[in-house]
Structure formats: C-alpha cells, structure tokens
Nucleic acid binder design. Sequence first.
RNA 1: GCGGGAGUAGCUCAGUGGUAGAGCUUCAGCCUUCCAAGCUGAAUGUCGCGGGUUCAAGUCCCGUCUCCCGCUCCA
Length: 521
Amino acid sequence: MADKLQRSDVTLDTIVSLCKRRGIIFPGSDIYGGLQGTFDYGPVGAELKRNVKNAWWRSMVQERFDIEGVDTSLLLHPAVWTASGHVENFTDPLCDSLGPSRKRYRADHIEETECAKFVLVDVTDNAAPKTLDTEIWAPTKKKAKEFFQQWYEKALGLEGRRVKIEEVEGSRTTGRFSPDDGGRLTEARQFNLMLSTTLGPVEESSAKVFLRPETAQGIFINYENARATARRKLPFGIAQQGKSFRNEITPRNFIFRTREFEQMEMEFFCKPGEFCKEGEQSDMEWFEFWRNERLQWYIRYGIQPANLRFYDHPKEKLSHYSRGTTDIEYLYPIGWQELEGIAHRGNFDLTQHMEHSGKDLRYFDPDANTHYVPYVIEPAAGVDRAMLAFLCDAYREEIVTSGEEGEGGKESRRVVLGLHKDLAPVKAAVFPLLKNRPELVETAKKIAADLKRFTNAVYDDTAAIGKLYRRQDEIGTPFCVTVDVDSMEDQAVTVRERDSMQQVRIPLDRVVAYLRDQLQG
RNA sequence: GCGGGAGUAGCUCAGUGGUAGAGCUUCAGCCUUCCAAGCUGAAUGUCGCGGGUUCAAGUCCCGUCUCCCGCUCCA
C-alpha cells in the first residue's frame, strides 16, 4: 500500500513545519519576533513532552526497586558550583583571528606552532616597492602564500597587483596563530556557560546566583538526606527531571540545542569495585548495565535500533568530572548527534561537596566494615532531544489509495506519526460519520466523555471522515472511533487503528474497555 | 561574535517603484453511509521592526531583530 519515505528524506524543516502546524512546538516569544534558543510547547507538544517524561519516570523510578525520585531547586547555593567545578571548568576560552577570516576559536584547541612573520611588499611599481601594514604568521613561506591567496589578496584589494611575500628576519617564534589565515589571535576571553541572576530586592547589594546548568548537583547535595530518609543501602539511585540553563554560544537546530532545556537525570550510587564481594556488581558493571538499559529504553518506546548507536568518549575529551562517558547517539536529520550521555562520575562530586561543605558524605559499608565515598553512574538524558528523536523516528509519509478494491482508486498522501501509544499526545479520537444526525453526534460525544475519564481523548466533527482521520494521523493518535448510522441499529462502532488503517466493529458498551485494553497492553 | 542565505495570510510561496495576491489550511452553511470529496460563503496581513530617499516603497538605502547554513558547543 504505502511507499515509505526514506529516512534520509525527512528533513528537520519537515519536522519543524509539522510541529508548528499541529501545535506541537512554537518558536519562543513568537509574537515579539522570537528569542534565540527558546521554544514553547503547544497543546499537542505539551502532552507529548509529558508522556516522554512519564515514560522515563516509569522506567527509571516506578518499575524499579532501587531508585528514588526527587525534585530539587533550580537555584542553588553559589558554593555548589564552585565545588562541582562548573565555575572553573564550565567555560570556553574564546579568541578571534585578527586576520581577514575573522574566525573564532576555542583558545585551548589551538596548538602552539613555530611561525615566522611575513610581510607583503607591493612591487607593481618596480621603482617604488611599498611594504604593506599587514602581517601573516606561518611556519613556511609556502603556507604564507596560501594564506595570502585565500584571504588577504581579496580582503586588501590586491588582485592583479604584484605582491612579494617576505619573511621578517628574526621574527621566528613559537606561539598561537590562526591556522586559517595566519592572523594574530585576540586574547582569550572566558565565556562561562552558566546563566546567572541575582537574589535580593536591591540588585547592587544582592547575591549573584547561577541557574543550574545540570540537575545533577541538586541530587548530590541531597544525597545524604535522600539516602537516610529512604533507608537505602548501596547500590541505589536518585532520579530527577527538571529544567536546566546554559548560555550556549550558538543555540541551533530547532530544539536540539537550546538555552533552556529539560533534563532527565539519574545518579546511581554504587560500591567501588575494590569493595565489592564475590557476586556483587562493581561500578564498571553498573556502568555497562546503564548503558544498555538506556539504549533499550529508546527501543522500547519505538526508536528503530538502526538509528541508535554508542559513542565512547576518548579519554582526553572527558569532562572534568568523568572517568568514562558513553553517548547514546541518534541519527537525526542533521546527522548522528548525542541523545543521552552515560557518565561514570567516580566519586568526584560527593568528594568535592564533602570538602567544600565540611559534611561527611561517606557511606558506611556494614559488610566491609569501612567508610568510603560511593561511585556514581549517571545516565543523563535531554527531554527535548528525546522528543525530537521520537518525532523524527515516528514521522512518515505514505501514499494511500482510496476507493473499493483498487478500481479507480484515488491516490493521496498521508502524514503519520507512528508514535508509541504511550507517547501519543491523544490516545483516541471519536467522530460521528455524519454531523447532521443528532443521535450520532450525541453518541460520539458520550463515548469521548467516557474515554476522557481515563485518558486523553478528543471529539471532532468539523470535517469529512477522511480528513478527520488524517488530522489524527499527523499527531499520532493510535485509535479513532466512528459512530455511523448502523451504530443505532447494531449498537456497535468502528475502531480504526492508525498504522494499519484496519477497522474493527466493537459493541458500544464494550468500546471503552476495548480501548483501555489496547492502550495499556 | 565572523562569513553566507532568508524574513509577505496559520502553512508553502508569487509579487523587481504605482490599488497586497494564489494554492493549501481554518471557520460557517448545504451536502455526504468510513480515509484530505463537492458546492456556497467567510476570516486572516501595520509585507520582521525602526528610520531614510521618493509625488509614490513589499520593492531602493541605512540600522536593528529573528531564523537557516558554516566555525564552536553538547542534554
């Protein structure tokens, strides 16, 4: 029946357009021209987002015996971020080339190289050579010439003129220069990725505080409170969902990188390997466990396994707190990108908070009869990134042939979000086949009301039946119920399934129970 | 921040100095016995925002904001 659209044909624009059209996601502050790096979730998107979060909470907290949930403050004591290393490390030193490329670099990504200074001499007029006030830093004259041809010739308007490139004697030195145009670099400026605000009525005298760049620290500083009150022994986890803020240099790619975003993080506290007895899972084994567990979660909720993969961070690229990090990457329309990070944070965070707060956060292990600081495995997922992945993976366009048994069937396009039923924003829609028959309308409304008592259902009669189905397909509604003229006779209705478009006849008095079974199964 | 591209109806876009348009969507009515049907009618725009040139600006100029692509970043 349907020619499925290739994965590579789904562009981000297609998803953005659908999101706006169907009330899933809008640009933030839209009527004021937008605010970079912010997005608002609409009527349908709010349901989808809630469902994603609930699915995570269900897997990570509800279905497990070893994880507790918390909900901590967005504003934390400034000392938290000193202890966590974010004040010091959560910064990018940036510098710009003073050459014509004007390129910007991470200062720590530029390697020191031995270069000499080259100057340009305009010898178009042989009798009066003119030395230009421009310097190019390059390891060789050949390289300097390349830079000249790529950037300087045009920038300085020297096309068609004869220019000699001369090395300045004794200028050879080791330093950092733009690898693109040989220009000097500006001083590195520290760009901290944390957003801040002030607490207190008078701004000048009030305290500067940071908006959290990750939810994890709220968990670490509550570790002992949560452990003691939940009467937990190792290993156990603490989970949290909530907003985080990062002053990203360049928010980009729809909701993939935004300045305000929502995280789903779990800190799993476990015994360091050396304290484990025979048969106990070590920290590295838990790391392995959570890598796979989190991958399976995405598959469970409908992501095609072929669109998921692991990426192990090489040691030299690890964050300041990490002993090992694996990303779960998803094949977005923009390419393979991080969906979730699973980090082995060692005992970095608790140790830091012990030192800075003066509180003892060690764990007393009755089996080993000793104190130690637990190790932490952290699966950290982005709600918005997960939503985007679910949307991209669920999106498909099909050519549908209407009409009976293929004779003179008319072809049309249908857009379907094949979302997992737990994620679908609307679970069921109820229609009267004909809206000018009061008894059909009344029955349909009654069914919708009954469904609404346990799930999100809608009633709609503002179009022909085909259009009503397609509207629901676009937002991934798994089931549609249609009340027709026969319903009055046989006391039954048609239930149409989204993906197969198959219809089954269900007695009126059983339709709610039927859908409840289908949706929970 | 730098370079390139773009902002006109809810969406996709046309409109190259002279009365703001089309298709789709949305809404209402009629009709319609299950997959975007048909007919009739309607709504919606300070042409991203601000300034300038001109008798006249969506169109030309300046500024500014936002979006997209690249450098950088990561949940």
